[in-house]
Amino acid sequence: MVQRRSLLDIVPHFILALGVIIIAFPVYIAFVASTWDAATISNGQMPLWPGPHFLENYYRTIFIGTAKTTREPVGIMMLNSFVMAMCIAIGKIAISLISAFAVVYFRFPFRMAAFWTIFITLMLPVEVRIYPTYKIVADLRLLDTYAGLTIPLIASATATLLFRQFFMTVPDELVEASRIDGAGPMKFFVDTLVPLSITSVAAMFVIQFIYGWNQYLWPLLITTSDNMQTIVIGIKKMIVTQDALTEWQIAMATAVLAMLPPVIVVVAMQKLFVKGLTETEK
């Protein structure tokens, strides 16, 4: 690296600090709003520092919900989001692991056809087939169920590609050693391949958990009953155009709660997150 005098380091520090502040500002404001009462916010004079209503607001948000709009406590919504995110992440990882295993470690007729069938789904995001997919889920009577919420989303070309890529780097000799040690294909998969894939699986989990938690359009279509709402859908329903009805302190507490799990996952598992992101997208 080209070394510079440390006086010049002030410039990058300044730019980065500014970036961090701008990035964090909207979230900070949301947090501040979640600690004031409705009156302080709605008269437009909310201060830039936290207020005294933190516990009260969050208690109400989690266990009671808004008085006027959604009615459902946000705790339930978080539970729904969590179940959805976990089902999607685990489901995607499970079916992609076995698909990649089949494609990499076996030779059989239509192998490449199967691979391309999975691969081409990259070009069919839910946004381009909204209503026909909705109709199928409706026909299967899966509306307002966890199954309808998650199963259509757990096919994953990216996860399959990532695992395929990783399996290709596993030395052939490990398969041979396993065969000599008397392990069949499934035993090799369970005893050796999956334990070796653990970092890739964890990286994939981070990415897919966030993907699942942040789903918006699909749950918007599939869920109608209040007790199936996810938190990301719920918050939208709290904000209505008639300002008088919107309880901003509750909405902002909900926003903070909606961000918390995925942000914690990203920050706590930063290395895995970066690995998962950069490797799946290439």
């Binding site: 030395p171 000799e173 490990l174 041979e176 050693a177 065969r179 000599i180 040690d181 008397g182 392990a183 005893d191 050796t192 334990p195 070796l196 653990i198």
Partner: peptide, 19 residues
């Protein structure tokens, strides 16, 4: 099958199970 032949093999890269 290799496992039925009653042989043992030492590989060039050892092929130890890393985990």
């Amino acid at each position: 099958d290799p496992s039925e032949r009653d042989i043992a093999m030492v590989f060039q890269n050892y092929a130890l199970y890393p985990h």
